[in-house]
């Protein structure tokens, strides 16, 4: 059975849990004491992922790190419909948003760790970067809504939506509300209505 090395408060692990649930894939988890234990920096974990980061996903002999890579693997392996990782003209756009989700949007993760877990860092600078990323997303989603589209790319949800959703939804942990982002508010509701949607602490199931 596939195995997720998991930390319950990690937005990146949540990306993987969310897609596993949407695709109805059975899996087991191994809890990693990310905080306060810093188990992800111990030798046993570094042997799995030398970067010392969560999540890690084991599947049929593969050991994968990076939430976006794991989403690609899951869609590639388990989604026969091809909906979640389209191989047509949409492919490049999906990759673009995956890169953004693992890049610019991670400012929210950084700000969240400072605000919530007292990590060292410049909270105001990360919050400014997080707001810039959210505005870029809101502008894109507003354009999509104007064209009648509900999702980041194309007419159906893709792994781009799943990679983006967790840290957008968790931005309040970083001290950023959604009052300025009406298009994000609409899009979040669509994601929450997907059959098989699950929340996480800080992302209530009810909506």
């Amino acid at each position: 059975m596939p195995k997720l090395y998991d930390y319950v408060l990690s937005g990146s692990c949540y990306k993987v849990r969310l897609l596993l649930s949407l695709l109805g894939i059975a899996y087991e988890t191994q809890a990693v004491d990310f905080f306060p234990g810093r188990e992800h920096k111990r030798p046993e974990f570094l042997a799995l992922n030398p970067l010392g980061q969560l999540p890690v996903f084991e599947d049929a002999g593969l050991v994968l790190r990076d939430a976006q890579a794991i989403l690609c693997h899951l869609a590639n392996t388990y989604d026969a419909s091809g909906q979640w990782l389209p191989r047509d003209v949409r492919f490049g756009s999906v990759m673009m948003w995956l890169s953004f989700a693992g890049g610019e949007l991670m400012a929210i993760s950084g700000a969240r760790m400072i605000a919530m877990l007292n990590y060292a860092g410049d909270l105001a600078a990360l919050q400014a970067k997080a707001r810039a990323a959210l505005r870029l997303l809101d502008d894109h989603l507003a354009d999509r809504a104007q064209a009648g589209g509900l999702w980041l790319v194309g007419a159906t949800p893709t792994i781009a939506d799943i990679a983006m959703f967790p840290y957008v939804a968790l931005s309040h942990d970083a001290g950023i509300g959604h009052e300025d982002y009406p298009a994000i508010n609409l899009w979040q509701r669509q994601v929450r209505k997907l059959p098989g949607f699950v929340g996480m602490p800080g992302v209530p199931d009810y909506f």
């Binding site: 809504a145 509300g177 959604h178 009052e179 009406p182 298009a183 508010n185 609409l186 509701r189």
Partner: peptide
């Protein structure tokens, strides 16, 4: 305080 389009049936929206 909002565009009607951005508040469809079933939604909540926070506004300052």
């Amino acid at each position: 305080i909002a565009l009607s389009r951005d508040v469809p049936v079933g939604i909540t929206r926070a506004v300052i």
